[in-house]
Design a binder for these strands. Structure first.
Lengths: 159, 159
DNA sequence: GGCAACTATGTTATATTGTAACATAACGAA
DNA sequence: TTCGTTATGTTACAATATAACATAGTTGCC
């Protein structure tokens, strides 16, 4: 498993642009509309590899001239989540841009308590292990929430 | 992995009593107090292998004569969670009694969409796999939220 | 272009979930 | 028994999320 992108220094402007381009391509393919609010919401989330609360997002959106009412942001988030462009961290009631739209499958989230950065990792082996263990207990898994909290490599272990 | 208790028919009265007895024993050992609200909260959650929202719980508590105010239930839940007697399902903002207080470690939750029952399983192999995969990505896991949604063995797969 | 159907956004209001802060009461050790 | 600690009652409010309906924009069809 290579180091998580979110936790390593990288050309983030490029990273953002690339993700946005992928999303645009997918929207074209699916014949769905990345309208201004939706696009702006995604762009805000793409600014950093951290998660934002809906109301933080809403404030930033209103600074960009959009209507400052909860349904605005929740609708945009609804769309983006439905399409898999954004994920919700259930533990934190916060939203994070998908770092690999298109490839993203059964994502696990690694959430650094010190720097708040969130890495999205697909861990196929672990996921399979989990699902098959559940299956042996007589359970058919349809959906998984996997959120690990801890410390990323860049944060000192006493923080 | 044997079938999850919550999903199989069993002597539930006995199951409840046993869990409560274990909790009482642990409280004695730890020298902490299972006061009436706390005990009642736990008993309500032990009635079924399902999760309840804080306000549902609060209503039941008030039916038992406790003060009908949010802090009452949140404080009881806070205590019970701190001690590991109750867990929160983050995905559902709901609370479920721990089915194996004492043995409980890194629990995963299997949540049936059809019947709402919740099984708590420790899946050591899967958990280790997950933590070590995260570790290879440069991440030190301190805490995990693992919640699988799907169908239990007793519920028809078209439900 | 004009119209109908559909999709998206604006807006008001309210539901749901969770805490802060301080007053009162119960408990437990000296 | 009295003092410090722990727990509960109570008021008020913060944070998160949705319902419902009005308005506007977009698309396809004629």
């Amino acid at each position: 498993m290579k180091k998580a992108l979110a936790f390593t220094s990288h050309d983030h402007k490029r990273c953002r642009r690339a993700t946005l381009a992928t999303v645009e391509k997918i929207c074209a393919e699916r014949n769905i509309r990345l309208t201004p609010v939706r696009r702006n919401t995604l762009e805000i989330l793409l600014e950093t590899h951290t998660a934002l609360g809906a109301y933080e997002l809403l404030e930033k959106l209103s600074q960009s001239g959009f209507c400052d009412k909860p349904p605005v942001v929740y609708r945009a988030l609804g769309f983006l989540m439905e399409q898999g462009f954004v994920h919700k961290l259930e533990r934190h009631n916060a939203f994070v841009a998908c770092s690999e739209p298109k490839k993203c499958k059964n994502p696990c989230f690694l959430i650094c308590r010190a720097c708040s950065r969130v890495a999205e990792q697909t861990m196929p082996a672990a996921h399979t292990e989990l699902v098959s263990a559940a299956n042996q207990a007589g359970f058919i898994t349809q959906n998984s929430v996997i959120e690990l909290s801890g410390l990323c490599a860049q944060c000192p272990s006493d923080s």
